[in-house]
Design a protein around this nucleic acid. Structure first.
Lengths: 329, 329
DNA sequence: TTGAAAGCGCTAACAC
DNA sequence: GTGTTAGCGCTTTCAA
């Protein structure tokens, strides 16, 4: 690998000068600059960023922790994160926490080992304590981690309300909500609260089913079929779109007509769902805005680790209306 | 940040000794080992991997270049890559080439800058020349890059055949194939060849439509509706599942019954499609096996850069039969 | 079994 | 404007 001193030798200058040229630092004559550029090109020189970072400079690496990018919601979020971070000159270390505490802890340790400038945390297996002591700029998506770690999320309470309202507007009488496992301190619990508030204002009973997030689709499917046959709800609010897709599928198998006999509403509203399942009514989280904000906050913290940020930032959701909640005409 | 010399001071030994303990190198008395371990724990010490890598050791970083992880196929592949690489002690730098030559080139340059131990290349905007000179272990997914860069892919020719056979077995008379833009040197072109071979053996005419990979779903949808109304095919083979989903959707909108009036077959067979669209007949690429092989080959090349590998590795596909090609009873 | 010292590739005082 | 020098945190001969 050609190094700085090679360039210096070829250009007939000192290493310092080459370093100055690379970093555009101090005063340099146009002539030396050209000589150095020429030498760099001749040798096809690439500065070794490791050596650079070793001086205590930034690594320009950001750790992005999520629980798997095969879920389109996280896939789209990670893709957007990578895009925006790249355009700011950062690269992404992809950390798939995979519902695995040990793995998430391992990753946290690795990332801490002086390698990344900051972390975006979107997987949440770990207790607060572990994140508390990281000592690196962190921004969290949708989960409380520690007092000085800002949370960015979309308006889960309002989203829950909107879903409830949509169901009631469609004259649903026996709605069911299917949630994931409620996690302590998770803003997503607010989806339930908002929904619940709307229902009780209209004296509609709450009927809640829980399907753990990590459960296999096949198993979820069985549960849902069970639910549909035993409970015979006329409306279902799923707190994620994939589960809503399963409900749609189960309804078809059981010859339950959507929306005639059953209204279905999902949550997340990814580009994927909008393009490939426009029939599904859903609550859209503004992924791009969320990412923009997270990146902005993270870079602020990196620039000034002591800068004061809010504890929590909430972005508005949007209702996307498909035919799955259409009123029967 | 606590460093090696801090540990040494606390343990009352030299830096060298601490280094030896960390790397389990040379001969050490059990007693010193314990002292050092204790000091490390006390200080919550994390070795700085940058400094380590600077000695010319490995960085344990792998660049993974794909064109966006929001597509479930790539999402699942990247997720699997991350998993397997993590378990081998490597971390992943996620590079989203996004159909953008300049970005892919930028990434390549960054990765080369002495930072990663190897590259998995799954996005292919760039000409062969750019990859030729990288001088780093590279494994390519589904595309020829250079004579000494192994290609791993699934059996695209056989996949195309299988799709054609499935369509013909369902008594299709006027099938259409919808492909992406054919790229030079891309093994995916074989899907068309295999399909074509099966058709011409039975004297069925080839009818081919092209929808560029980067086209928006909405636009694709319009084209597909056009195709369905003007050409009135009774069978469609899409060389990716997402397009097949669009066909299914378009058919529904146009009141074309699937499979009665139209058989549809896709390609890729992700876990996602299997779980959420079991009705779709599709050709499954063995993502896990592909990844396992790519990782294995890459690690071999890293261990011995001169090791001889095949130019090309082809893994078998599998047909997943849904109702979308069911014979009319 | 352990330590001293040199150096990985680069940057940043401090000279000149 | 440019060069000298001293490290960044760690590993690795070479000696003891």
């Amino acid at each position: 690998m050609t190094k700085l001193t090679d360039v210096a030798r070829v250009a007939g200058v000192s290493a310092t000068t080459v370093s100055r040229v690379i970093n555009n630092y101090g005063s340099l004559s146009e002539k030396t600059k050209q000589k150095v550029y020429a030498a760099m090109r001749e040798l096809n020189y690439q500065p070794n960023s490791l050596a650079r970072s070793l001086q205590g400079k930034q690594t320009k690496l950001i750790g992005v922790i999520f629980s798997g990018v095969s879920n389109p919601f996280f896939g789209e979020m990670v893709e957007e994160l990578e895009n925006q971070l790249f355009s700011k000159g950062y690269r992404v270390i992809l950390c798939n926490a995979a519902d695995d505490k040990a793995k998430e802890r391992d990753y946290l340790r690795m990332l801490m080992a002086n390698q990344v400038d900051g972390i975006i945390a979107g997987a949440h297996n770990l207790g607060i304590e572990e994140y508390h002591q990281v000592g690196l700029p962190i921004i969290s998506f949708d989960r409380y981690l520690s007092d000085n770690i800002p949370i960015v999320s979309s308006d889960n309470y309002r989203g829950g309300q909107a879903a409830g309202e949509a169901l009631l507007a469609a004259r649903v009488q026996h709605p069911v909500i299917i949630t994931g496992q409620q996690q302590p301190n998770s803003p997503t619990n607010q989806r339930l609260s908002g929904y619940q508030a709307v229902l009780s204002a209209k004296d509609v009973a709450l009927d809640q089913w829980t399907l753990a997030f990590g459960m296999s689709p096949t198993l979820k499917m069985m549960r849902i079929r069970q639910l549909l046959t035993t409970h015979q709800p006329d409306g279902i609010f799923c707190t994620d779109d994939l589960t809503a897709l399963l409900v749609l599928q189960a309804a078809k198998q059981l010859n339950i007509a959507v929306p005639q006999a059953l209204k279905v509403i999902g949550y997340d509203g990814t580009r994927f769902i909008q393009a490939y399942h426009p029939e599904l009514t859903t609550i859209m989280q503004p992924i791009t805005d969320i990412v923009t904000l997270m990146v902005e906050l993270l870079l602020q913290r990196i620039a000034d680790p002591d800068c004061q940020l809010e504890t929590s930032y909430t972005l508005p959701i949007k209702v996307i209306t498909g035919t799955s909640t259409a009123a029967i005409s």
